[in-house]
Design a protein around this nucleic acid. Structure first.
Length: 111
DNA sequence: CTAGTGACTACAT
DNA sequence: TATGTAGCCACTA
């Protein structure tokens, strides 16, 4: 079915919306939860498209080491960091502090 | 159809 | 430990 792609994107958005307040997750974690652990790039691609969605907190999605790799894709220069700090997530030098503590794994928390 | 790129990750050197 | 290369899938030229 050609609409599978749409489904994949929708699933990514759904998981992103499920990220609790003050928590962050990684592209790979979402990809793994979706059954496409080796398609973390697709999650990033979906996030790029998520800019069209208001309900998708893409700022809560970072790479596996907690670096705001996608901060450049947000408006302004520190919007992503500002949003995270606004939720109580400490960010320094484009990197999430205490990443292990704020990390939220859908494959582990939701399962 | 081939080649290049990208909000990633894992393995290899 | 740090740097480089490969795999991954979708999109664009």
């Amino acid at each position: 079915m050609k609409q599978d792609n749409q489904n994949f994107f929708e699933r990514v958005y759904d998981v992103a919306r499920l990220i609790p307040y003050g928590r962050v997750t990684s592209y790979g974690a979402i990809a793994k939860y979706l059954g496409a652990a080796r398609s973390a790039r697709m999650v990033g691609w979906a996030m790029n498209a998520s800019g069209l969605k208001e309900d998708v907190p893409a700022h809560r999605v970072v790479n596996r080491i907690g670096v705001l790799s996608g901060k450049h894709h947000f408006q302004g220069t520190n919007l992503m960091q500002q949003l995270l700090e606004s939720e109580g997530v400490e960010v320094e030098d484009n990197q999430v502090m205490d990443f292990e503590k704020v990390f939220w794994d859908p494959a582990a928390e939701l399962l």
